[in-house]
Amino acid sequence: MTSDIALAGPDAANAEAEVLRKSPFAIRGLTVSYDQKPAVFSVDATIRPGQMTAIVGPNGAGKSTLLKAALGIVKPLSGQITSLGRPLAQEMHRIAYVPQRASVDWDFPVRVIDVVQMGLYREIGLLKRLSGGQKSKAMACLARVGMEDFAKRQIGQLSGGQQQRVFLARALAQDADLYLLDEPFAGVDAATEKAIIEVLKSLRAEGRTVVAVHHDLSTVPEYFDDVLLLNVRKIAEGPVAEVFTDAALEAAYGGRLASARITTNAATG
């Protein structure tokens, strides 16, 4: 990639810099490996601002790993991650992350509202107490996912879908420009899925960028604007209408395509 630019001269380099400056989330040459087996290999991706992008691919395609490596949760072997042209590591205050629900211990002694308030710690700092305004902000985020009545509940008493909405409320409290979500619809009920997608669409309407790891091919055209098809390497990226084709799915899913195609056809036809 970089050598191409060098060969192509300063104009191409300027064009690339311009592309990076505009993208809220751009990945260049990202490789991550677990025990010398690459989970993500040399992936480039440029997320468009103000759009909803799905990261799609078969199991083990490195979808979650890509997000975690971008955020520094796992250490990549190589690659640059930028946001609006600056290294992502310096822009963490503009990013909110919603991890997979299964990644935490739900018996942990915290209440729903405590979890949402964790989204505010970045702005509060180490010692200050929560102001009244911040408390009502946390409550408003909870209301936005329809969970305000559950504020005082211990988190272990929630259903899976409710837990997912609490995680989303915590991310809302971070008031970010870029939302990265890892499988937000995995194992949630239909009502929650609807509630989450409404919130994500409202974030987009406010001009924020949403990127979600997604496993349900049938809902990709309905929910998302753009798609990043991944199977360790990048298969395709771009607007759903152009990129989410049988050929690209065949390339990403290989022999598993048959079932994938049935589900997409069922959704579109």
Binding site: L71, H93, A96, P99, D105, V110, M118, R122
Partner: peptide, 13 residues
């Protein structure tokens, strides 16, 4: 935060 949800804590800086 790092005890309850280390991934989120890391992503929060």
């Amino acid at each position: 935060m790092s005890a309850f949800d280390p991934e989120f804590a890391r992503a929060s800086g």
